[in-house]
Write a protein that binds this DNA or RNA. Structure first.
Lengths: 180, 180
DNA sequence: TTGCAATAGTTTCGACTCGCCACTAATTAA
DNA sequence: TTAATTAGTGGCGAGTCGAAACTATTGCAA
């Protein structure tokens, strides 16, 4: 068996072990993935389309998942005033609380030493980058690593959207992020 | 965001990108995962229970998935004579053909250099080992790395099952595998 | 300005996974 | 010879999945 196939197999198996724990509470893995994304995305990146693209699924499927999360009280929904087609989601207190769970992958990573963990992080980051390049997918990187970002005394500024950014926002995921 | 959370997130995102491709043909990701496992498992490790445990799901769910794979012509089913409760699956020609697909993760890995790929492989292997230790899961490792295995001129021998093994079988996954 | 294409989101469809639980049949232990 | 265990199946309700049809809004261009 080729090494690349082994790596792919390991990746999938670890993700399945993670998903097996994703059923905690009344959430399923897909709902948990969506909630985790929304907890880390900035205010320009919280629409059904963005979550769908990040999680590599369709808008239709994601619409259902988000509807379930709203119904269960994890998210609240708001229509944009600027563009009345756009919807944006925010985590409720219950949603915030649900994102801080410790799971089996985190506990497993505690056993690795600092250097190995750093290597693993870099390896996965590099792999994701090359996969996204080949598939044409967006990076969904962190705001302050973007070529449209400029730092200011308090937070920063996005030259693409012409918007000032709070300190917190500069550390969140942006769907427009494009590495400097 | 903590580094362990970032790693978990990367793992899940890569697995989702892989799963997105898993819909190739008339198979869905769960069916493809089961088929991939069966293609690599030895003759003692091809029952619904084994696939279910490997993929961290229930026997009930797996029973359905395997039934779908038989119906679609990817697997054939055989009841054991020794223990009439036991069922074992074998890949048909169509099943064999379906396992050799190249996918986006493999293509992405081609961009990494040999050393980084080796590090990634080791990092994921170590992580899986420590996760399995914490969750009490079985390793499902390769036969010839097992403490019950002894090498012979042609293939080997399993002292646990008291069975001679062909050369090919010593390189397959065994549900009884326990590292030497 | 009207008229049409593009975009954002929703809904419905059929196939299927998922955990859970109840069930049957076969095997093993007491 | 019961009783417990093990292997597998089947059904339930919730929900994911891609695909496709649909509404509403926005943007663009003639």
């Amino acid at each position: 068996m080729k090494q690349t196939e082994q790596i792919r197999s390991l990746l999938n198996r670890l993700a399945r072990l993670d998903a097996g724990e994703g059923w905690a509470g009344d959430l399923n893995p897909a709902q948990r993935d969506a909630l985790d994304y929304l907890a880390r995305a900035n205010r320009f990146s919280r629409s059904p389309s963005h979550v769908a693209e990040y999680l590599d699924t369709t808008r239709g499927t994601m619409s259902q998942t988000l509807k379930a999360l709203v119904r269960k009280g994890y998210l609240s929904e708001k229509r944009s005033i600027m563009d009345k087609r756009v919807v944006s989601f925010t985590l409720t207190d219950q949603g915030q609380k649900a994102t801080s769970d410790i799971n089996i992958i985190n506990r497993g990573l505690d056993d690795l030493n600092v250097s190995d963990r750093k290597d693993l992080h870099k390896g996965l980051t590099d792999l994701l980058e090359s996969v996204l390049k080949k598939s044409g997918g967006k990076a969904f990187g962190i705001c302050h690593t973007c070529r449209h970002f400029s730092k200011e005394s308090q937070g920063g500024f996005c030259s693409l959207l012409s918007e000032p950014l709070t300190e917190l926002e500069t550390k969140q995921i942006c769907h427009e992020q494009d590495s400097a």
